[in-house]
Amino acid sequence: MTNQSITLKDLSFAYDDIHPILTGLSWDIQKGHIYSLLGKSGCGKSTLLRLIAGLETPDKGSVDIQTNTPPAFVFQEPALLPWASVYHNIKLPVSLGAASASTAEIESYISLLGLDGLEDRYPAQLSGGQKMRVSIARALTQKAEILLLDEPFAALDEPLRFELNDLLLSLQDRLKMTVIFVTHSVYEAAYLADAAVVLNMGKLQSILPLDHNRSLPSSKQRSSHQFADNAARIFRALEEA
């Protein structure tokens, strides 16, 4: 039984003939880890996520997903159907035949994301944080082993970001998913990721394994030397990019 969940081999991609986005990128993604993708704007972070999700087709190379379920995707915007209730938004993958989850299971995801009592509300009646929780709950309904997140918390204020960061950690701890998330925040990557992956010129520049003491409360973790060291290493890698 392999410990890899995704293998990217010699991946190349361009939206046009002039600007290549990815140029021969290879990466073995390990099961059950949290990876943060970092790099300058336009370096191909979101494109890489879209290629893994199957939303784009590589010009060259291959994306080999070694899990039983296709990856779930959380976009930068919550991407909710405005005319559907919270419950029906979360149920969307089931309604479209992309997943099979019972009513009890959907209700359990609603509880897990702290959305109890909001099931009948429409997205316009929710706060930014609640909308993002619905978006994550919808992704969980797929029961995917891989969760891809494209700057999911970028539009949220700091306390809410911290709260959702912790939520993501507890979900990963519980569901043991492989998580790959794109972020512009070095501190978010330093706190969340098991490894920070820096992209440069369409290739992987470095993969930095990060240390954490998850037994500490989140505020202590964020003020620990380990956290500062993680952030400093990511900053250095980005400077070299």
Partner: peptide, 14 residues
């Protein structure tokens, strides 16, 4: 139609 929602439906194989 919202582009992200379009992507979502594509992702779910609608």
């Amino acid at each position: 139609v919202d582009r992200t929602l379009n992507d979502l439906f594509k992702l779910y194989g609608a």
